[in-house]
Design a protein around this nucleic acid. Structure first.
Lengths: 206, 206
DNA sequence: CTATTGACTGACCGTCGGTCAGTTTGGTTG
DNA sequence: CAACCAAACTGACCGACGGTCAGTCAATAG
């Protein structure tokens, strides 16, 4: 092609390099812990020089942010898929929350890194990503409330509280057991959700 | 007195020094932010040498932990007082949660420091302190469930989820507004709690 | 071949947390 | 009173790390 045909001459493409670093980050964070991991160690694991690391990520925080971004991307996609199925209000929210909890439980290691050893800047980057899922669901819940399916003072706030509740519970468990009993958490979260959003059929205990 | 009569000779007593450092910590964390605050800066604000800081606290993390400990101490005392009043189950839990939310809202600055800029080690120290309140209340809720006042699959889990929900909501707000409308948060939290713990009188919305 | 590009490198710099040998303080003792 | 002593205090120092940048080198164009 014309003049600007370069880029792909190096042993690895930029995409591959980035992948290498992301993989190295996951490995090093998991073994050394986020706080104790050094850029030098991550670069070594990715088999690159320290300087190269900074060509792909601004800092260790941003590397963790990128890892989390992928995790959230998967959730957002899954959530959007379920919403698009267009099932009834309650089955839909049940399916979404079940998927969210399962996905979180299946990624306990990443959760432990983010919530257990990340610093403030990294956490903020991760929280930013979380808001995408929450926004998606809040919108859904508000529409459900307008349609008369959900009942709460403020449905969006109610859902956000449920989300925090699930998040907190998963957090707790991520530090107790290596394997979280996702189904049990799902049961707790769904019960809370049904009550929080005023499902008439959920008032009895069991 | 006998041989071992010493201690109180210095310009400041150990207690006063500790107070100085705690006050300096609050100030510096609030202005510089936790992450960017340096020991040297905190020591200067407390008008002591850097070495002296380490005689009173193991690290910046532990200093924040000590600040948070005081905050939690106040909550635990208040909670225990309310429990000791021996009112009925629902009024008691309402009062405790109202006090918790109000106390948190009144300490937005500290919350912002802990949840917004603390690192993992500091957060863990703070979380450890939180567990004291949660344990107190979980015990109460379990007894309430046995007495037939509360209804949920697992009352302790239900309360912990409510606690996480309140915590998360307060977190969100602490970063939006400087002044949180505590009463509004109380309303949301109490509605969620009543529904989560199966208050028959709470199923209607609004 | 030479020229050019840009991905890559690692020695280097500034900063900070934490240490410790030495100094100061002030109560105690004779 | 002075001599003494132990605890409180200090800040120069050390090691480690994050981040930079001048220089290297492989791949391509002409």
């Amino acid at each position: 092609m014309a003049t600007g045909t370069r880029r792909k001459r190096v042993a690895k493409s930029q995409e591959d390099r980035r992948e290498d670093i992301l993989r190295a980050g996951r490995e090093v964070f998991a073994t050394t812990g986020f706080a104790d991991a050094t850029i030098t160690e991550i670069a070594a694991a990715a088999e690159i020089g320290k300087g190269t690391f900074y060509l792909y990520f601004d800092s260790k925080d941003h590397l963790l942010g990128a890892l989390w971004e992928r995790y959230v991307d998967a959730i957002v996609t899954k959530t959007q898929d379920i919403l698009d199925e267009g099932a009834d209000w309650w089955p839909t929210i049940d399916r979404v929350l079940t998927a969210l909890v399962r996905h979180a439980a299946a990624n306990g290691a990443l959760h432990r890194i983010v919530y257990g050893s990340a610093n403030a800047k990294a956490l903020e980057i991760c929280r930013q990503a979380n808001r995408r899922v929450v926004a998606l669901m809040c919108d859904f819940v508000v529409r459900g409330a307008e349609a008369g399916a959900f009942h709460a003072h403020d449905p969006a706030v109610a859902f956000r509280m449920v989300y925090h509740a699930a998040d907190g519970l998963l957090d707790e468990l991520a530090f107790q057991d290596d394997d979280i009993d996702a189904d049990q958490v799902v049961r707790h979260v769904l019960q809370l959700t049904h009550r929080a959003l005023g499902d008439p059929a959920s008032t009895s205990a069991s």
